[in-house]
């Protein structure tokens, strides 16, 4: 609230008391009327300033404002800057796409490799039985010739399968390249969030002035409360005591509840 506005209010309030004490009711009514006018005028002024701040903030938020009614000059002023939020959304979508692709690619490779490794193990285990009998000199000449051939085949098989596994591991390694790319994109978005944050602080300061004149009280919407309740991954669990920091904490809490 501006100082002038406050001084004016105090002055008019004092006049009102004077009139009432002097028993001049008509003058008192006029003073009340003036007080009202003063309040409305102050409010208009603050709303005017708020409107200007909102406009500046929107420009600083770099949001798409094509849908808003604005002067041609303002539109021209905004061009080139207005779509950075839109751009940030695209960038974050790109991060989701890249991480999802990497996760799927990695799982493809794992799902392909597990049976290969299983086949290697099973074939080796089958040969192991005959090999032990050979060591104990229990094999007939016929069986020995068969084992001889099987070992030869297995050595080729093992070589081929190992190459297959190495190729898949290498693909898994390459699939991690998203980390570098998404890191760069996220850093850009963080920078924009910082800029928007300072505009927002300005806007909130302005809005609180209007709130104080009109006596509006802010109640968070139920949707906001729901969002707050479902917080998702906790990134600073060590610094908080309302969250669990590990699976052990979960187990302790549940067992304290009789689980």
């Amino acid at each position: 609230m501006s100082d002038d506005f406050e001084k004016q209010l105090v002055k008019q309030a004092n006049q009102l008391i004077d009139h009432l004490e002097a028993g001049d009711n008509q003058a008192a009514m006029e003073a009340i009327e003036k007080l009202y006018q003063g309040r409305d005028f102050g409010l208009f002024q603050e709303i005017g300033k708020l409107t200007r701040t909102v406009h500046d903030a929107i420009r600083n938020f770099h949001v798409e404002t094509d849908g808003l009614e604005r002067t041609a000059a303002a539109k021209k002023e905004d061009q080139g800057e207005s779509s950075r939020i839109e751009d940030a959304k695209d960038r974050l979508e790109y991060v989701i796409r890249l991480t999802e692709n990497a996760a799927n690619k990695t799982m493809d490779m794992v799902e392909e490799t597990v049976p290969v490794s299983k086949e290697l193990r099973e074939t080796a285990m089958n040969l192991k039985g005959d090999w032990e009998r050979l060591m104990r000199r229990e094999l007939s000449a016929e069986e020995f010739r068969s084992l001889y051939k099987q070992i030869d085949e297995f050595l080729d098989f093992a070589g081929t399968k190992a190459t297959n596994i190495e190729d898949n591991l290498s693909s898994i390694l390459l699939a991690q390249d998203y980390q570098d790319l998404t890191g760069q994109v996220i850093k850009k978005v963080i920078k924009l969030v910082h800029e928007v944050e300072s505009s927002l602080v300005c806007l909130v300061t302005m809005a609180s002035k209007v709130e104080s004149i009109t006596g509006i009280q802010y109640e968070p919407s139920s949707e906001a409360r729901e969002e707050e309740y479902l917080e998702g991954p906790i990134i600073n669990a060590e610094e908080r005591d309302d969250v669990v920091a590990s699976q052990d904490d979960v187990d302790d809490l549940l067992s304290s509840l009789g689980f």
Binding site: G232, V244, L254
Partner: peptide, 10 residues
Amino acid sequence: TAEAKREQIV
């Protein structure tokens, strides 16, 4: 789940 608040587990 990633939800890790004590009140949620309760």
